[in-house]
Every structure is written in structure tokens, then in C-alpha cells.
Write a protein that binds this DNA or RNA. Sequence first.
DNA 1: GCCCGGTATCAAGAAGCCGTCAAGCAGTTG
DNA 2: CAACTGCTTGACGGCTTCTTGATACCGGGC
Lengths: 235, 235
Amino acid sequence: MTGETVLVIEDTPAIGRALRAALEARGYHAVLAMTGKDGIDAAAVSDPGAIILDLGLPDMDGRDVCRRIRTWSDVPIIVLTVDDSEQRKVETLDIGADDYVTKPFSTPELLARVRVALRRGRAVDGEPPDPILTVGDVVVDVPHHRVQVAGEDVELTPKEFAFLALLARYPGRVLTHRAILQEVWGPEYGSETQYLRVYASQLRKKLGEDPSAPRLVTEPGVGYRLVDRAAIPEP
Amino acid sequence: MTGETVLVIEDTPAIGRALRAALEARGYHAVLAMTGKDGIDAAAVSDPGAIILDLGLPDMDGRDVCRRIRTWSDVPIIVLTVDDSEQRKVETLDIGADDYVTKPFSTPELLARVRVALRRGRAVDGEPPDPILTVGDVVVDVPHHRVQVAGEDVELTPKEFAFLALLARYPGRVLTHRAILQEVWGPEYGSETQYLRVYASQLRKKLGEDPSAPRLVTEPGVGYRLVDRAAIPEP
DNA sequence: GCCCGGTATCAAGAAGCCGTCAAGCAGTTG
DNA sequence: CAACTGCTTGACGGCTTCTTGATACCGGGC
């Protein structure tokens, strides 16, 4: 979750503070650097999702800052400067900047361009694989909302599914009555243990439980847990 | 290697020709479209690495063109327009444009911004999503807003289409009521599940669903999913 | 053998969700 | 302004799921 950090490299205190305030008002985490050296450091340390870079820095040429950051990072860089010349714009964009905004700038527009930059940056990282929970021969595919036991599809009601998915998320561990009730039924339920008995019973039926080798194990007076039948029972 | 194609959607012949010449002089393959409809077609067919889009088109609002292309593609879009009002800029960037250049523009600067766009586009590259989604005998052509079932064209309203296209993008996967409502109707809708029932019903009618082998499956209490009727249920 | 706390199972009524129809409304087009 | 299209909303029957109470079960302590 580093994508929502925006690094501002800007030596004029008034502009830097204004940008930080505007960014933070929008919910971003803003990091402010006032020199090129600090900016490069901050780019490496804070791993921002986008950078706003003023070209007119006291200690080094802003374009060198851009080049330096580009040697190791593809983070979107929005350049901010008073220089409106076409040649300078082309040069700057070609050394790796993603956008070029001239001062005086409109804050809403700059923020919109920051959103574009963050949007682009996020798109790079691939989507995470589907989290599929497996406990023994029980497979709980949460995104697809599907359950299989020994390769066979099993139809579950929403509450049944939530119950099983919760247990499957903590394989082998006991979940207390209270914890299950609050997670599946809601925070105001905590003592309706009868629900659990009913649903545990229904689940066992649907899972095709063998009473001598249960997958859904009762911990009397405590709660329930889901175990891998093939696992070694002795610790 | 389609990344070096640039699509220009521009109705003024002089500007279109000038841009094409400038792009081809730089070694890019330029495709020119003079209407929004043609532009959307070309975006789907020629799979460009970047798009230059004039907002002032004769047949439709340029922002709608942008939105439409964004329904299936992340190709960088550089918007070109005479309107330099801040509000319009912010709006346009927020609906998915990557850059905003006002006329009269500097050709070298625009070309530099095209280079940025192509650079970014390549970096993102993963795998381009197919703009034509197929789930069993249901074919959803997102760019053309066209749907076929078993080879037969089916007429859908915009909301129906958005609903179906969303489901088709995640074949077999359950999309929750909330997710569908927010994607199709907007973020402020989240609990109007009645809409879903009405539209699911209409869709099933138009898709010619067989109640015993539904393509659009209800996941009670959770959401809906689109399945390939012929598919084997084993993962 | 009997009691007792906790558990499993069953079944019936209540509640909620789903599919469908149809009427009202708003925006567009000719 | 009339016809049309698509969106929203209310009503209602049918069905699934949830809840709840009744009853049987099981193991340990006495």
C-alpha cells in the first residue's frame, strides 16, 4: 500500500506547504523535500506512487533529479516549472518526466494530473491471484463463491458458506463460538450458540462427513475447527 | 508490435493531415479517424499504442468517446481541445484521459507527450485484454456495444449491456450485488438490489435462457455470475 | 443407574429474497 | 407534441433461508 504516497520536491516553502495541504486534504500521504538531494533520497526511501518535481531547485538541476530517479524507478514524475519554452518541455519529457505543468498552476488541475499518474502507476502491478482456501479435500474458492469436497461441487447457503470459509481461513485452529457468531451473523450476536449447532449439523451433512473421521471438529464448550483428515492427529 | 501505431481522432482535415505527417515523419504508423464512431472502431481494430483525441467531434461528445474506449482499453489517450477551462480539464482527466493539450498546440510538444504516452503504455504492457469477451455461446463485443448469443444478434439497452459486459469480464466468477450496482449504476448505488432483479430478468429473456440450464446464474444473497453452459465444472 | 451441561438433529413457522409484471417518468427524435 | 425508448419504482406470488422450539443424545460425576 505505498501507492498513495506523493512526494513533493519543491524549494519554495509556500508552494510546498500548499501542495502538501491539498494532497493531504484529498487523503494522500504527502512527503515534502526541499532540495534535489533530499528529493532523491525520499524517492528511494518513501517509495511514492507519484512525484511532483519543481525544476528550479537550489542545489541541482531538476532534470538531473529526474534522470537520477529514472535510473532505478518508473514512478510517474510530474514536473513543475516557470519555464514555458517548448524546447525545455520536449527535453524534460524526453528524459523521463510524465507530465509538465507550468507555474502559475491551477491546483485542481495539478491534482487531477496526480490522479492520472497514480492511476497509471497502479495499473503496472499485476492483479493478485484468487485466494483459494484448501483444507484437506475441502476447497473453498471465495471469489467464485464455490465449494468442493473431494472434487465434487457442494451447494451452500450464504450463512453456511460464510461459516465454512471462516473456518477454512484458519485451518486446524479453534474458533470460539463468539468469534464465529460475530463474524458470520454480526457483532450483536454472541451467545446464540444454537445457531452454530444447527449450521454445523447442516454443514456436516452437506460435506458428507464420516462421523468417525470428522473434518468439522467440535471443541466442547469452546468452539469449532476445520481439520485436514489426512493430517497427523498427534502433536 | 502494435505499440508504434498512433490513432488520431480529429475532424479538422488540416490538423489531422498535419498530425499524421508529423507522426509518420517520426516513424510511427498513424491512423486517422474523423468521427467519434470511426475513432472507436479504429481504437478496437488497429490496437494503437496511443490515441490523440480531439474533443470537438461532429457526431458525439469527445468525452463519451474517451469513456467508451476506457470500457475495454487502457491505451493512453491525449486529449486535444480549444477549451482550456480548469473544470473541463479536471473532468476530462478524471474520466480516463492521460493528458490534456489545448489548441493552438506546439507540434514538438505534442509529439513529446506522445512519446511519454507510448513509453508508459509499453511499460504497463502486461497482456492487453481482449475487447471481445466470449463466455460459452455469448459473445460481447465491447467496443461496438454488440452482443451475440449462439450467432444471433441481441439488442440490449445501455444498462443491460453494461451489466452483461461486466459479468462477461469475469467468467464464472460471482460478482456481488454491490459490485455490480457500483460499476453499472455508479458509486452511490449500492443497495438497490431491485434493479438487479429487474435487469437480470430482462437479460435472461433477451438471452433466451433455458431455466434448466441458465447462463446467468443467481447466487442467492450474494450476487450473479455468467457461466459457460458447456464448461466442465472441474478447475 | 440417574442427573446434568453441553451437543446434535429435526421440523415448522417467520422472514427475506428473487423473478416477474406493469405502470409511471424522463429524455430523445422526428 | 406525439411516439418511442429506456430507467425507475411498486406490488405480489413463490421459494429459499433463517430462526426457533422440541426432542434425543452423549459423557462424566456421583
